[in-house]
Simulated scan of single mutants.
Amino acid sequence: MIPFLDLKAQYASIKDEIDDAVLRVLASTRYILGEEVEAFEREFAAYCDSKHAVAVNTGTSALHLSLLAAGIGPGDEVITVPMTFVATVSAICYTGARPVFVDIEPATCTMDPAMVEAAITPRTKAIVPVHLYGQMADMDPIMDIAARHGLAVIEDACQAHGAEYHGRRSGSIGVAGCFSFYPGKNLGACGEGGIVVTSSDSHAEAIRMLRDWGQSQRYHHVLKGFNYRMDGIQGAVLRVKLGHLERWTRARRSHAALYDKLLAGSGGTTAPVQAHGRRHVYHIYALRASGRDRLREGLRSVGIECGLHYPIPVHLQEAHADLGYRAGDFPVAEAVAREALSLPIFPEMTTDQVRQVVEAVEECAYAA
């Protein structure tokens, strides 16, 4: 069997470091925020070429607080894409604002800048491009549009730890970048976690208060805040894993390059595209196949686990029917939702496992 990812193998490779870090927090009794979280914030900010990092409990919370810190609220509109995990849209809704969707580019599956300007209205206050699968959106034209219209840009980088756009790190281009440390992410906690990176002093200050009941100091509540604090154990674990992230990223990129090479010319499938000037970190290796569901079942029957990211775009989810969108409104996103199949990819994967997956893909595609 080849798993979709192997968290046990990752833990085994750094077990002593992780165990020491966890025991250090237990001995300190600093279970919420504390020195380990503060150190991780400094280290992750430096990794992202940003001035500040503010650790929170989830990537969703990172998005929510970044939007609030940018002044987004009831009556506002925020432009994003329907091809994303639902948390992107939920965070917008939490502020009372309305999500407005634009379609994605077929090659990269990220926001199509050519669609953005037509979606802007007098109520538009922000743009949230999603760096899907580990590749950054085309940020220069998005930033140009935002500057012309006075809009905040908040990067949903929850799948793009260490990704780059013309030499700039994910999260460092907009007013803020939001990351998730869900266990399966390229940089994953042993539980939940998230962070906001920003070079704006005011944005960082607001988020630090908002994550901790709006306090400027203990029992001085300046803002109506939330309990979105990071646990000390997660900060310690993430500090350890951050030290391995570049090595893990090189392994992911190597596996993706081998997939690309071996799948070239494979009938009925299309490999993901890494756009010029972008460093794709391959959180997901999203193959596209016209017979995706048959291919998935065929791979499962021979012991290869795959994923679907994401089979129903957000504008067609029942929970967001109130937005009024219909099938056909975003044809590229809808086509990707029908065709994308996430193949196994994780740093500890072997070359032989990649070859086995490709052989199985070709056999199943031929049988179909």
Rank of each mutant, 00 (worst) to 15 (best):
P3F: 00
T29M: 12
S290V: 15
Y228N: 13
D19P: 08
S216G: 11
G291R: 13
I142T: 04
H64F: 05
P3S: 02
W248P: 10
G265R: 01
L63R: 04
D49I: 02
H131L: 08
M139H: 08
Y165H: 15
Y366S: 14
R355N: 08
A340N: 15
E17Y: 07
D231C: 12
L316V: 07
R278C: 12
E205N: 05
L299Q: 05
V196W: 04
A9E: 13
H244L: 10
E17Q: 15
E205M: 03
T269S: 09
M83S: 12
I233V: 15
A55Q: 00
L223T: 02
A146G: 11
R338V: 07
G193L: 00
F40T: 00
Q353W: 00
P344A: 00
P129R: 07
D231S: 15
I120H: 02
G303H: 09
Q135V: 10
K185L: 10
E334K: 10
R355L: 04
R208H: 01
A152L: 04
P99Y: 07
W248E: 14
F4K: 08
A147C: 07
Y11W: 11
D76G: 09
H52I: 00
L5M: 12
D352Q: 14
I233E: 13
I2L: 03
R98H: 09
A365K: 05
H315C: 06
I18L: 15
I345D: 09
G268Q: 00
P313R: 03
L65A: 03
A69P: 08
D140L: 12
Q159H: 12
P331M: 02
H166Q: 14
E105Y: 02
Y182L: 07
L245P: 06
A21F: 02
S170C: 12
E105T: 11
Y228I: 03
L223N: 06
F4P: 01
D201E: 14
I145G: 04
G134P: 07
R148T: 02
E348N: 12
D76S: 14
Y228K: 11
Q317R: 15
S266W: 01
F330A: 05
D103C: 00
L23C: 09
Q10V: 10
R229G: 03
S254L: 14
A189K: 01
L341H: 08
Q159G: 04
L5D: 09
S50L: 03
A204V: 00
A87V: 10
E192M: 15
M115Y: 04
P129L: 08
H52W: 12
R168Y: 06
H221V: 13
L33W: 04
L7T: 10
I145A: 06
D76E: 08
A333K: 05
C48S: 12
H52D: 01
V196A: 02
I173C: 07
Y47N: 06
C48P: 11
Q274M: 13
